[in-house]
Design a protein around this nucleic acid. Structure first.
Lengths: 227, 227
DNA sequence: AAATATCTGTTGGTTTTCCAACAAAGGAAG
DNA sequence: CTTCCTTTGTTGGAAAACCAACAGATATTT
């Protein structure tokens, strides 16, 4: 329990709630913790789930394979992140995507009926919990907007540069490592792997980036890279 | 006021709240109503807004022009729909897109501080209002996921068919009209207009669809059209 | 009604992506 | 170390998208 509370400090859902209060909330919510191995499926597409998950360790990927066989990586969720939470508060209850583990990971599952029914009780933290959830979903909304903007770009080059620029910004440095392999990156950008590899080489030859395996450096920092 | 209450019946935000209660809420929230002409800008990109909008009549479009000059239409919001609401509950406060009118329209503006600060008061409808907002944002989240899936498709044909199929489903009929002109549709699908026009002709010649101006019919209903 | 502006479909030429195949590099397992 | 498997980069041909330009249709203005 100690460890769990510690892990949850990264989770916004329990923001503004003390550790002691969090502990009693967890009991009240009857949460359950599960461990998964790399590549294991947490939620399968089309499944109906009564609970959403919180990543405690490792990283999960939200994926969808479309009719034409193209795999799309919709999001990567790291420690403290939520997945499947949208369906706790929407009418739609079947998952339109699958969630699987990028590496060995642990997740905490919360039944959303419990979370919602808490509203009826006069629980002192309930209000904070709901507002936190609102903030999380709102932020995910913004993330999806940015994601949409990225995928809407017309060429592989534009997508790559926009992605690298965003990663650089996130890392706070012009040099950074990414945690996707080439195929995953292609699926994230919705482009073809080999063409993307070729484009990376081209950008390197043109002196726009430096790259070695999963390490990238953006040169020519003055350029806005489309952002 | 009568009319306003009537118009708001389509708005989920006031779901489960009686008309009388809605009326007092509106006063409490100090909402303001504004009218706009076709093509007029409601929110400009980069703006900081303290309020979100509810479409009372007409339709607004959420757009973004990227670095390369491509216009992307992110969403169309009809009567009863909300726009800019995400920023009421997120840390990010500047709008990453602009909102403009597809035709003459009216919108109601709600200051999100007022909505949030109501939480402090013991207002009887506040809880319902917040949960409604949660549902709306969650649904928008799902919409964005679907949108992402659409834009991630690789070819103009796939995008078109997915779009038409979704519209058909929404209309509840294999024949339906769309409220976007060709350029707008292209911007919505993130493709090039002329290529898209050509693709529409091709689909028509192949007997997959029937189309005349903004009216479309999906033939060959047995095909899943990638969905 | 005439003139003007906007929207739509069509068509070449160019660029880019997609696809399939393969070879080199790296890791994991025996 | 060797073998097997996965990942990555490269390349050439096919397909598709992009772009610009234009003409016919439709809408709007004068």
């Amino acid at each position: 329990m100690e460890k769990l509370i510690y892990q949850l400090r990264k989770c916004e859902l329990f923001g503004e709630i003390s550790e002691g209060e969090t502990e009693s909330l967890l009991i009240c919510l009857e949460v359950s913790k599960k461990s998964f191995e790399k590549k294991q499926i947490v939620f399968a597409e089309g499944e109906r789930s009564d609970s959403f998950g919180i990543v405690l360790s490792g990283q999960v990927q939200v994926k969808k394979i479309d009719f034409y066989g193209n795999r799309n990586i919709l999001a990567m969720i790291g420690e403290g992140g939520l997945f499947g939470e949208t369906f706790a508060f929407s009418k739609q209850k079947t998952l339109p995507f699958s969630v699987s583990c990028a590496n060995d990971c642990e997740a905490l599952f919360v039944d959303h009926h419990k979370l919602a029914s808490m509203c009826a009780k006069a629980c002192p933290y309930h209000n904070t919990l709901i507002l936190n959830m609102l903030g999380i979903i709102a932020d995910k909304n913004i993330f999806l907007n940015e994601r949409l903007e990225l995928v809407a770009k017309r060429t592989t080059k534009e997508k790559l540069l926009a992605f690298l620029y965003a990663e650089s910004k996130r890392a706070g440095s012009s040099c950074f490592a990414i945690n996707l392999n080439r195929q995953e990156l292609a699926d994230y950008l919705s482009v073809e792997r080999s063409a993307m590899s070729a484009e990376i080489s081209k950008l390197r030859n043109e002196g726009i980036i430096k790259s070695d395996k999963n390490n990238f450096c953006l040169l020519k920092k003055s350029e806005p890279f489309g952002l």
